[in-house]
Design a protein around this nucleic acid. Structure first.
Length: 720
DNA sequence: GAGCACTGC
């Protein structure tokens, strides 16, 4: 009692716990490297429109820069800070709210700090600082392409170069010269020193775009609805040259725009020194070398200090885990124990948490990880990094129209990022399992995603936000012209563009949906009265837009169980209707959905995201007045329904149809390429008149994934 | 009879 009273008195004399906490937080902020730069940042932004700010991790730029500029006279509106990942947006907002002593998001109408990510909008009417994912900012631009509510847009982690960040940078560049009523300031933050291209990008005068962004928000009603589809030939069409003529014509007007002033500032990171080791000569057996190095470090280096090993994929990780564990059993008892922990995105949530838990006494953790540990998560306790120098990279091949996942050498900046993971808490070591010459020969940076992917979605994103002349869009790295033309033709074929190249009313509807243009087109098709299968198609599309719902099965015994469980759900027509059956059964399960998922060897996590997407799509379709029925048809085995559902998919994926040839192989209608049914399909090994597939992937050979049987006459009906 | 690096609306 007595001691309680005395502490109470003490607190009254000094500060309340809340105030004490804020003082402590402020002390922490003052120790951040960026704190010293706050006056410079404020003054530079008074005089310039754009600030390029480079700084390594730990400089505090993501949390402090918005706070530094919040009370500036030019900053009357909101400040947006974009992040590539949802977790980062949420945790940064939480941190900044704490530092400012304001409640977070919608918890109070007075809250000044909030965040916005998919499925979770947490803001208040008083929100001034908003952290949001790049995708969310682009989504907001559908309502207001001028970003009118913001005085400042901070684009963080630009060095990661997602397609979305490239689009945002392009839009911001255009807005800097077109938004005159409410001035806009832009802060571009990047970890790497490759800031020259960013500075040049914002300094150069933009090539004017046909329809200015500020007048972009055209009403959907202006255009006629329907399936306007332009010429289907491969030849060039009017839209392109038209836009280019216009571009030339509006050059003169743009001469009046002043060039934008761009400032640059660098802030040091907080990083301990990391000793780098290379191989003397190239290793032919990287698994062997990795294994050897792990034990070398473990036996020579003192505790504590965990090991983080960067590898290419889950297969190699699980292989190496087995071998390391076998060898570790032979260690004599005078060495610490080894705990091997795999880390990759496909692991269950629980398994992904294990590297974050402290190791038992006298035990060293060895985390075998994919690129997930390079940017997405930070594993504590790591002092040794082993870098194999390789990663799996997705590459879209324009000519073939397919994705391939290839093991490739990483870039210098990726290697440096991996190295940095050893010096977060103490001095560390980075063991590069390649030669120093190999390091020097690496590309400086990874190829930006916009050079590696199908551009259909990006092109539709631009057009739906008023950037009509996509070939004239200001890209930090312009994609090749043939990739752009391929995307334009694909959108034209989907009916998302008119023959002139302008976006159609249908295209605007597709652009609002959080889906690829093809999947969006399927949704629109399903809402047509004669199709009448929107709810069913939403279920299937939701599955196709998330990670696979089928769990990986690695042992023989589990594989048999999985086959029996999946046979119960399997539909003869193929994977699309099988997915529908799975979602309907999961949704009907009232008592224990997790157990149902486990019993059917279906990923519960994936099913939860399916349900989230399903809810979001249903709500959006209602809003767009697309929904026709409120209850699903009774059964997925209704043949008329099956036919209608598959016809909808044909409309969105008409390029992904192959027919059976006399030699037993399948050949695509367009391009006459051989495609095999993916072994994960319920149709594997079957011979059918024709197949439709959602994804064309190249691994050991060309596979179609998510396959259904279709009839040739349907194809003719749908594609005309 | 094969595989799925990682994000995001």
């Amino acid at each position: 009692m007595e001691s309680n009273k005395s502490t109470k008195r003490k607190r009254v004399d000094e500060k309340t716990p809340l105030q004490q906490k804020r003082v402590k937080l402020l002390e922490g902020r003052k120790r951040l490297p960026i704190w010293q730069k706050q006056n410079e940042i404020r003054s530079v932004l008074r005089d310039h429109d754009v600030l390029v700010l480079s700084g390594e991790t730990g400089s505090g730029k993501s949390t402090q820069v918005p706070q530094f500029i919040l009370d500036q006279p030019w900053c009357r509106g909101k400040i947006a800070t974009t992040q590539p990942r949802r977790v980062a947006a949420i945790s940064l907002a939480r941190r900044v709210a704490e530092e400012m002593g304001t409640p977070l998001g919608s918890s109070s109408p007075a809250s000044k700090v909030g965040y916005s990510v998919r499925f979770d909008e947490n803001t208040s009417p008083s929100t001034r600082i908003k952290y949001l994912t790049e995708g969310m900012l682009l989504q907001e631009m559908l309502r207001d392409a001028t970003m009118g509510q913001y005085s400042c847009v901070i684009v963080d982690e630009v060095h990661e170069r997602s397609v979305n960040v490239d689009l945002i940078l392009g839009f911001l560049k255009l807005l800097l010269s077109t938004r005159r009523d409410k001035p806009l300031k832009v802060v571009v933050m990047s970890a790497t020193a490759d800031v020259d291209s960013l500075r040049r990008f914002f300094s150069e005068r933009p090539t004017p775009i046909r329809s200015a962004i500020s007048t972009a928000v055209t009403a959907d009603t202006v255009e006629t609805d329907g399936n306007e589809s332009g010429p289907e030939s491969e030849a060039s069409w009017d839209g392109l040259s038209d836009s280019e003529q216009h571009r030339a014509a509006s050059m003169a007007e743009d001469d009046r725009c002043s060039e934008k002033s761009v400032a640059y500032c660098h802030v040091e990171g907080r990083q301990y020194p990391v000793l780098t080791r290379y191989l003397d000569s190239h290793s032919d057996d990287i698994m062997e070398t990795t294994l050897h190095r792990i034990f070398q470090i473990h036996c020579k280096e003192p505790m504590p200090g965990d090991l983080l090993v960067f590898m290419t994929g889950s297969d190699k990780i699980l292989d190496l885990q087995k071998i390391v564990e076998e060898y570790a059993q032979n260690l004599t008892s005078d060495f610490p124990k080894l705990l091997v922990l795999p880390l990759f995105a496909a692991l269950s949530q629980a398994a992904q948490q294990r590297p974050f838990q402290p190791a038992p006494p006298n035990t060293r953790k060895v985390i075998l990880s994919t690129n997930i540990a390079e940017t997405s998560v930070t594993v504590p306790g790591v002092r040794f990094v082993v870098d194999t120098g390789m990663a799996k990279v997705k590459q879209f091949r324009i000519r073939l129209g397919l994705d391939s996942l290839l093991v490739k050498q990483i870039s210098k900046s990726s290697a440096d990022q991996r190295k940095g993971r050893a010096g977060r808490e103490a001095p560390g070591q980075c063991h590069r399992l390649y030669t120093e010459a190999a390091y020097r020969s690496m590309d400086e940076h990874d190829k930006p995603e916009i050079l590696r992917c199908d551009l259909s979605a990006a092109v539709l994103t631009m057009k739906a936000r008023g950037a009509d002349d996509v070939l004239g869009f200001p890209f930090l790295t312009p994609p090749p012209r043939d990739a752009m033309e391929k995307a334009l033709l694909n959108l034209l074929q989907l009916g998302a563009l008119q023959g002139t190249g302008r976006i159609s009313a249908l295209g605007r509807k597709i652009a609002r949906l959080p889906l690829t243009p093809s999947l969006g087109r399927v949704i629109i098709e399903a809402a047509r009265p004669e199709m009448d299968c929107l709810l069913e198609v939403i279920d299937i599309v939701a599955c196709l837009s998330v990670e696979s719902i089928w769990l990986n099965v690695d042992t023989e015994e589990v594989r048999e169980r999985a086959q029996i469980a999946r046979q119960q759900l399997a539909k003869r027509s193929g994977d699309h209707l099988t997915l529908l059956a799975a979602v309907q059964a999961y949704a009907a399960e009232q008592s224990d959905r997790r157990r149902w998922a486990d019993d059917h060897l279906i990923s519960h996590r994936a099913m939860q995201s399916v349900m989230d997407v399903r809810k979001q799509l249903t709500a959006q379709c209602k809003q767009a007045k697309l929904l026709l029925r409120t209850t699903e048809a009774s059964s997925a085995s209704d043949e008329g329904l099956q036919e209608r559902v598959l016809k909808c998919f044909l409309r969105g994926f008409s390029g992904n149809v192959a027919r059976l040839c006399p030699d037993g192989s399948y050949k695509t209608f367009i391009g006459n390429q051989t495609v095999a049914i993916h072994p994960s399909s319920v149709l594997r090994g079957r011979k059918l008149e024709a197949i439709l597939y959602n994804e064309f992937v190249y691994t050991s050979k060309a596979y179609g994934r998510n396959v259904s049987a279709v009839q040739l006459r349907w194809f003719e009906e749908v594609v005309e």
